[in-house]
Design a protein around this nucleic acid. Structure first.
Lengths: 196, 196, 196, 196
DNA sequence: AATGAATGAGCCTTCATTCAT
DNA sequence: AATGAATGAAGGCTCATTCAT
């Protein structure tokens, strides 16, 4: 009996396998065959569902981005206080499922990939803009427009910086310390503001 | 035209071409042929001088790292005051010749490469350790040991974060704004300390 | 035309083509492309099925060795008399399908290859040991242990010698004359023994 | 001061290096660079003196052949008795300097090479013919023409067989045992003849 | 729905050989 | 006499992608 409606399962399996494979290899230099094998199917079927290797990567990236977006949305629900909301966004970045070695490695490789692929770059910039607008929404309630802009830039860069360092196993601070340092960056600005 | 003593010139040409090619492509997926062509020689000669593609990449990376190191050393000469010295290190990171699109792109790809290659990882960690010890040397004069550690981590991550954002043309702040924000991070800590 | 189950056919075609190509060239300096072309497939497919050039060679050699072994086994069936059995083994070495120009040339190149490749050497020594134990089994019934050993060595070397000479088209004796001379070597020993 | 008359020394060094290199590698797959390096000169100079890689190999082979020929001539001097002379020829084949691992390996590779190269084949056949005529000269004094022919073939093949086995480190008999077995082959024929 | 079969294109690497000095 | 410089040509191998079943 021919199975029907396999597509969603196959796609999901491929996406998961893609992230795992890239994460392990620490590189986009993974073959479609490797990914397909891990996903339990033939490379031919993978192509059938995705059309090309690029599309496979894009789908995986979209998955990571969407998953992060949903995590943020969830954490912001019921939070009113600006400072708390910003901390929630930061927390989302370091949450398990996001700051895991595997995910971060995949994330990084995609980042680099954006230098080559317009599609990837577009995807990334959508995410970046949304993250920034999220931050700005609350920062504007705490700081002047110029200061808010600066804090947003600082926070985002700091997070990216910790990501890259996490991926490379430098003597990087662990998850909690990293998150604490980012939160502290907000605190430093709050203190300056308080002091006048 | 004399035909002896070409090796240094050839090596230099290859290194320059490697950085340019990687910078433009935004990827390590460049062929030895491409690089050699840009450097004005045959791929065979490139292999003759470097032995392998990996060695070509390593040489290019060593060049970037050494160049950065020398820049830092130069800028620290004659500076005594801790805060000024830290600002000098930051400035070196954003100096032209270092924060250029091309260099940063190459830098990033090497960063990612470190996830695969032991050799690259080693090279990078040497640089990271030196940078940190440079920062710590002066930070310890300004802060408690724990605080110094935190500031160092923050500064380094912030710089890396701006690098990655610079490479990706996000709505990233420009060179001066980036540098200013990093310096301001130090300022924020100094203010907190001053306030007690 | 069904497109499944091609692997065995492809492998067989490759093995045959390998022996032919090496036989014609009289050298292992043949390219995978040449062999694959003769076998009617792309070099890529050849690699797909064998993994590497070395594996292709090994497979071809295993084929020759196995084919010789089976020929010997077949000829020994139903033979009880020691002298007849030894003559059968000798005959197998000179049988058509074994002492053909092509096969002998391939055989020789593999022999030489054994000086470089552990794998080939191992394969060859397995065959050599089996051939010797075959000979010794019957020789021990005809001669003293020391004599049996000598006869075995002589017979084996003589066969190898005729092989090498056959391959090189020296004014070498033809198949029948070669075989007769080897058999006569056994006869010489039998006469000596008879005479006491 | 420019050195003059270097050519003979250079050629000799190259020939020695060629035999050593091939002997060690157990293969003709050695590069001109390897040989030249071992001979203490640049590959360019090697080409200057020999013209091509083929010529280098041919020169090395000619050297081996000539050296063997001279050894035979020397050993035959002052020997009158046919049987003794034949034994001397056999002894020459197994003499140190001829039956050494290195030489034998080179010898074998050249043998195989003869299947490809007309030049090598010609060289080899000259040697084979001379060896045979040497043997026949004395054998004819001991046997009928047909028998002499057979003994010559047997002796030559036996020697070649021991060579090949010596090169491959099979559980081959050592130098003395090999030589004894070849001599014994002659003895077997003498006994048959004596018995009548 | 699924896959084994198949390949074209391309890359890294090696090497004999040439040339200018 | 001697060599560093340089390359064209070729080979092994990989892989995304297509196709027939």
């Amino acid at each position: 009996m021919p199975k029907v409606g396999m597509e969603p399962q196959r796609r999901e399996a491929m996406i998961r396998a893609t992230i795992q494979t890239i994460g392990e290899a620490g590189s986009l230099d993974v073959t479609v065959s490797q990914i397909a094998k891990r996903a339990g199917m033939s490379p031919a079927l993978a192509h059938h569902y995705f059309g090309s290797k690029d599309q496979i990567f894009l789908a995986a990236m979209r998955h990571i981005l969407r998953s992060f977006g949903e995590s943020v949305t969830l954490r912001l629900r019921n939070l009113e206080e600006p400072e708390a909301r910003i901390r929630a966004i930061i927390a989302a970045s370091f949450a398990s499922g996001q700051f895991d070695k595997e995910i971060v490695a995949a994330w990084l490789t995609f980042y680099v990939r954006a230098m080559q692929s317009e599609d990837v770059a577009r995807l990334l910039s959508v995410y970046a803009r949304r993250l920034k607008s999220n931050l700005m929404y609350d920062l504007r309630k705490l700081f002047s427009p110029e200061e808010a802009e600066q804090v947003a830039q600082g926070l985002a860069s700091l997070i990216d910086g910790f990501y890259i360092r996490h991926a490379l196993q430098h003597v990087a601070p662990d998850r909690d310390a990293s998150q604490a340092l980012v939160c502290d960056y907000l605190a430093l600005w709050m203190e300056r503001k308080a002091r006048g």
